[in-house]
Design a binder for these strands. Structure first.
Length: 478
RNA sequence: CGGGAUGUGGCUCAGUUUGGUAGAGCGCUUGGUUUGGGACCAAGAUGCCGCAGGUUCGAAUCCUGUCAUCCCGACCA
């Protein structure tokens, strides 16, 4: 395409500067803009609409598995945060303390919640007394604050929006099942709704959540080969229950501590969408969560009948597809580029020639394939094409992930691979944190997860050479 | 939190070295011609030069502080 270059001048090409490409897309797709507050962004209507669709989809999956929504305070008293030792140690450096206007008499400091385990536990202490009170399957949609040193839109912001599920169970088995079930919900959501293939696995002790007994994760590979932790699900055992003295009378009339889980997915997932599906023309939004699934662009709208036909078409389509009509004064070419930057999955062009022939042209965002479709067949063709875009995105992402996954059997090999080829590296590990640290220091990679689907790469730890316990996927992460 | 860079109409930037009436392109508004890959013509509007102090007859320009953003590290969802 002759004008291809001119068309994309607004967005820095990925190969030239990936970080700049990312922020260009965030801005040009009108997802977010910076605010006057350090590290905090304004999520603009288009970004908010995307988040709402993500939220509604996830929320209905949570409800289907029996969870209820709840809303807790955004402030945590200092004493409450400190109740569980590992937890407070993990979060202390990034906690935002609230300063009260010079009131010296306040009983204690408050912080803005960095996560709500402690608040939930405080509440569970009050409401859990009998095995009949269990399980408690709660979820909260809210924002939390973590005072991070450096921030990037969606990937790491000072305040971010998320959901946090917090559940309490009678037995360890049940809590463990819940932990795994919710990881599965996230993985399904990513694959079915976001067209993002993910790797399911367990975090090493070094990488696990502060206060958790074990942390499970889904890791997705971004366009540049770096990993993005897309959601986590934690099993707490009864650690917090003991710290918060949450006890119930069991079926055998003994006092017992309940077992706990928590799990979360945040607006960071929008960063995953951008960096998994986006290209040099901008964002590509997976159809299931796209605020606009199809945009109608009238060609030569001043010609008689075109505007009316486009408006009538929109009315007809809106019962089964999220459709927008761009009837602005901009030229057709401008509109093409605009909606491509915003990642609208399908574009429908309707011009005088089409109307004459009772047809239109539909263009896929993911591969730019044009299809001439009879206006009579739109009801079946549009859903088909949306599905085709979804499948196309998923397959492309999966192929990339496979082609950028390597394996290594020695320190030299893992080091060479990490330096020369961005991506995931499968290598065996003995289970010692010393080796994990050494790999980070020497090869610059961290453990992303111990995948559920284990493979045998070699017999011995890639670092120390002792007998290996697990295959670990290593890489660079966001 | 360390190292580097940058804040000037909505956006991208010039002007700062050597203090002296606030600039350009794009965008915006109005009118007209256009529209199948970011159209064109004409007229118009838009600025306490990031913010706060200081030096000076006079500050976008010099000094001090502060806030924000970007890049590279360390820390983290």
């Amino acid at each position: 395409m002759a004008d291809n270059k001119k068309m994309v001048e607004a967005i820095t090409p990925m190969d030239e500067d990936f970080a700049k490409w990312y922020t260009d897309v965030v801005k040009k797709a009108e997802l977010a803009s910076y605010s006057g507050v350090r590290g905090c962004m304004i999520i603009r209507p288009y970004g908010t609409a995307l988040w709402e669709n993500i939220r509604n989809d996830l929320d209905s999956r949570f409800k289907k598995s029996g969870h209820e929504n709840i809303m807790l305070p955004m402030f945590i008293p200092e004493s409450l945060l400190q109740r569980e030792k590992d937890h407070v140690e993990g979060f202390a450096p990034e906690v935002a303390w609230v300063t009260h206007g010079g009131d010296e008499k306040l009983p204690e400091r408050l912080c803005v919640r960095p996560t709500s385990e402690t608040l939930f536990c405080d509440h569970y202490h009050d409401i859990i007394h009998s095995y009949r009170d269990l399980p408690k399957l709660y979820n909260q949609w809210c924002s939390v604050v973590r005072w991070e040193k450096t921030t990037r839109p969606f990937l790491r912001t000072t305040e971010f929006f998320w959901q946090e599920g917090h559940t309490m169970h009678e037995t360890a088995r049940e809590a463990m099942d819940e932990t795994e079930q919710m990881l599965g919900v996230y993985a399904d959501f990513c694959e079915q709704s976001l067209a993002i293939p993910v790797l399911k696995g367990k975090k090493t002790d070094k990488e696990k959540f502060a206060g958790a007994e074990s942390t499970y994760t889904i890791e997705a590979m971004m366009h540049d080969g770096k990993a993005l932790q897309s959601a986590t699900s934690h099993y707490f055992g009864d650690g917090f229950s003991r710290a918060f003295e949450i006890q119930f009378t069991g079926r055998d009339n003994t006092l017992q501590y309940p077992f706990q889980t928590s799990w979360g997915m945040s607006t960071r997932i929008i960063g995953a969408i951008i960096m998994t599906h986006g290209d040099d023309n901008g964002l590509v939004v997976p159809p299931a969560v796209a605020p606009i699934q199809l945009v109608i662009i009238p060609i030569a709208p001043h010609k008689p009948g075109v505007t009316d036909a486009a408006a009538a078409l929109k009315e007809r389509l809106k019962s089964f597809v999220r459709v927008n009509l761009d009837d602005s004064d901009n030229s057709a070419g401008w509109k093409f580029a605009e909606h491509e930057m915003k990642g609208v999955p399908l574009r429908l062009e309707l011009g005088p020639r089409d109307i004459e022939n009772n047809q239109c042209v539909i263009v896929r965002r993911d591969n730019r394939e044009k299809t001439v479709v009879s206006l009579d067949e739109l009801d079946t063709k549009i859903p088909e094409l949306l599905k085709a875009v979804h499948d196309g995105l998923y397959q492309k992402a999966l192929k990339r992930q496979i082609s950028m996954t390597y394996s290594a059997v020695s320190m030299d090999e893992i080091k060479d691979t990490a330096e020369s080829k961005p991506g995931f590296i499968k290598a065996m590990w003995c289970g010692n944190v010393e080796c994990e640290n050494e790999l980070k220091e020497k090869a610059g990679v961290t453990s992303r997860c111990i995948p559920f689907e284990q493979e045998h790469i070699s017999d011995n730890c890639v670092c120390c050479g002792k007998k290996a316990e697990h295959m670990v996927v290593w890489g660079k992460a966001y």
